[in-house]
């Protein structure tokens, strides 16, 4: 277990994977990319399952490649036998598809992996380039809080960093990557998701690499991952997953769980 009070590990270059949503093909491609970029460590920020096919395959990749991990709401729910994903949606249409996704993932995740998920911490701290990183799934205070670019303003970020005694909050949960940092590089980095494209009409997905600058500070790079999305779509169809989920993988436009989007992110999509 990672103890938030223990001295954080100091690293030079770290890859962060957001929601994987059972997209094992994208995860495999991302791990390969991260390795060629010479990272010191890889971290997965939760939600390994959901949406996609064969959830155990993603867990096996994380274990095989020594990816360190914290829980997302999916791991919390799967490991405690909860009846739903606790995604944090408020609209019945969002919850309808969330339930289909969770029920499939629950049924196809092995018990041993569910138990392993229960052993993961919900938070971690690292140090990169002299900056104190606070890793979480949704937000530091709540595993399923959505931090979107358009509704996470600077004064709120400043309060969060003060409350957390941190320089950078590194999170996922929304599925769209963004960052907002001040002149000193302090702020929030949402690393996006490997599980599905960021509702932009392209088929590639994203992760983030944070690197220490020689003189101190952190560079943030969002890395696009091109993978065999057609193969993933075929596997999803074979598993009987909804056509709406497959369409997102094939087109890059979100078709479900849209009501939670703030106005600006919603307007950027097709639906």
């Amino acid at each position: 277990m990672h103890d938030l009070k223990a001295a954080p590990a100091t690293l030079g270059k770290v890859a962060f994977f957001g929601g994987i949503y059972s997209n094992h093909l994208a995860l495999e491609a991302a791990i390969r990319l991260a390795r060629t970029r010479g990272v010191d460590a890889m971290w997965a920020l939760g939600d390994f399952g959901a949406f996609g096919p064969h959830p155990d395959r993603s867990v096996e990749l994380l274990m095989e490649h020594g990816v360190q991990a914290i829980q997302g709401n999916y791991e919390e729910s799967l490991s405690t036998g909860a009846e739903d994903c606790h995604c944090g949606y408020t609209d019945p249409r969002d919850n309808h598809y969330a339930q289909i996704s969770y029920d499939y993932t629950f049924e196809h995740t092995s018990d041993a992996y569910k138990r392993w998920m229960g052993t993961l911490p919900k938070a971690a701290r690292l140090e990169v380039g002299g900056q104190r990183l606070r890793l979480c799934h949704g937000s530091p205070r709540q595993i399923n809080e959505f931090l979107w670019a358009s509704n996470t303003p600077t004064p709120f970020i400043e309060r969060m960093l003060k409350d957390e005694d941190a320089d950078l909050v590194v999170c996922t949960h929304t599925g769209i990557h963004w960052q907002r940092r001040d002149a000193d590089g302090r702020g929030v980095v949402n690393v996006g998701a490997l599980g599905r494209p960021p509702n932009d009409g392209t088929t590639n997905v994203w992760f983030a690499i944070l690197s220490a600058r020689p003189g101190g500070g952190v560079d943030v790079e969002f890395v696009p991952v091109h993978y065999e999305h057609g193969l993933l779509a075929r596997q999803m169809a074979q598993e009987g997953l909804p056509q709406e989920f497959i369409e997102t993988i094939e087109t890059g436009w979100w078709t479900t769980c849209l009501e939670i989007l703030p106005a600006r992110e919603r307007a950027a999509g097709r639906y």
Binding site: N151, P153, P155, F156, M160, K162
Partner: peptide
């Protein structure tokens, strides 16, 4: 006052 208190929305 809200800015100083870190209000979100």
């Amino acid at each position: 006052e809200a800015r100083d208190l870190g209000v979100r929305e």
